[in-house]
Design a protein around this nucleic acid. Structure first.
Length: 354
DNA sequence: CGTAGAGCCATATACCGCTA
DNA sequence: TAGCGGTATATGGCTCTACG
């Protein structure tokens, strides 16, 4: 069972200071096609008119196609250095949806060719960026080949970007270098030698933000044991910073997404519990529901924002009713009725109704 | 106008992690 | 452990540009 200690929303959590690229959003539901060069935009505008009138697709010159692919690649790279096939498919679909004249007649979807071209383009684009020294792609480049047989094999001893790791290996923030960031790291280690009451948590949070690139570099490039990591980055193992770091890497709020995921299974959980309330299983379920309810209540109370309404209502009202049922049978469920609880249930039900 | 060089797209191949 | 899928890299072919 996780213990939720929410991160105050007025922290700097959403403003990563990680340079190049600032991946502050996850892959969108609908990919936003960028604006291309003036010449290409004009040609597309004309082409779209012709397509609407005569149904003719546009024939692009080499440079025009290059401009489109380059623009698309740059836009995709802002979101992810290594997009999945599905993500490239979505981008291609968005492209031919916005510019109907780019729809291919030969393919079933109308964008199979674009998808293929974008796949290759992303590969070439990564090579280009890697040669320019962009870290999150350069880390995987320069591996063994016919001309370079002595080099280590690709993908060996390297932590690859996982699904959801949108900020895999960011460059240092502009104006910062390793020495400056190392000084900040040491300052944090010093802070952690103080007592909890004396510790400057605001300073630690700010330093953790600034040193994100350095930390990622250490984690991605070296396979340091956890003990070393704990020694070098003690703040990382605190609950608030753990959530913040997760957010910095994936742009996702860990506790919220956990509860959102759990939300889907609430009904089944409750039905399961209703069917079997006795024995060890029933006891475990009761404990589980109580703990969830407590966490949800805590989150709602502290953050005062509406997350996971249905789970709140489902669990809290259920536990509340269940407790009353049990009481009527002179068996305490062990759940204290508080003003807060009653206020919360009614306010959640109100919100649910709106 | 012919040619060399550069840049780009696309293909082939090797390698590695993941999974059934 | 074999097969699959994803990635890096080398390279071929094409087009464009600069230059003599």
């Amino acid at each position: 069972m996780i213990s939720v200690q929410p991160v105050p929303m007025n922290t700097v959590m959403l403003s990563d200071n990680t340079d190049s690229p600032d991946r502050l959003s996850r892959w969108p539901e609908v990919f936003v096609v960028p604006t291309f060069s003036y010449e290409v935009e004009y040609t597309l505008k004309e082409g779209n008119c012709t397509f609407e009138k005569e149904g003719k697709s546009l024939i692009l010159t080499r440079d025009q196609k290059h401009n489109i692919l380059e623009g698309m690649a740059a836009e995709i790279y802002k979101l992810k250095a290594y997009p999945s096939g599905e993500q490239i498919r979505k981008a291609s679909e968005a492209l031919v949806t916005k510019h109907l004249c780019l729809r291919e007649r030969g393919s079933k979807t109308g964008y199979d060719g674009w998808k293929n071209s974008l796949c290759f383009k992303m590969g070439n684009y990564r090579t280009k960026l890697s040669r320019a020294g962009v870290k999150d792609v350069a880390v995987n480049a320069g591996k063994r080949s016919k001309s370079n047989p002595e080099a280590s094999a690709s993908r060996s001893s390297i932590k690859r970007p996982r699904r959801g790791e949108v900020n895999f290996l960011p460059n240092y923030p502009s104006g910062e270098n390793k020495d400056i960031l190392e000084t900040l790291r040491l300052a944090m280690v010093e802070e952690f030698k103080k007592t909890t009451a004396e510790r400057n948590m605001i300073l630690i949070h700010q330093h953790m933000q600034r040193t994100f690139a350095l930390r990622r570099e250490e984690i991605v490039n070296s396979t340091s044991p956890i003990a070393d990591l704990k020694e070098r980055w003690p703040a990382l193992f605190g609950e608030a910073q753990l959530y913040s770091e997760f957010h910095r890497i994936t742009n996702q709020n860990l506790p919220f997404s956990f509860f959102a995921g759990l939300d889907k299974y609430t009904q089944q959980l409750l039905q399961l519990y209703k069917k079997k309330r006795t024995g060890i299983f029933g006891e475990k379920m009761a404990n589980l529901l109580r703990a969830y309810a407590e966490q949800v209540r805590l989150m709602y109370n502290v953050l005062n924002i509406g997350v996971s309404f249905s789970i709140c209502v489902n669990i809290l009202t259920f536990v509340h009713q269940d407790k009353n049922d049990k009481r009527s049978k002179s068996s305490s469920f062990g759940w204290p009725t508080t003003l807060l609880e009653r206020r919360l249930i009614s306010s959640l039900q109100e919100l649910q109704g709106t």
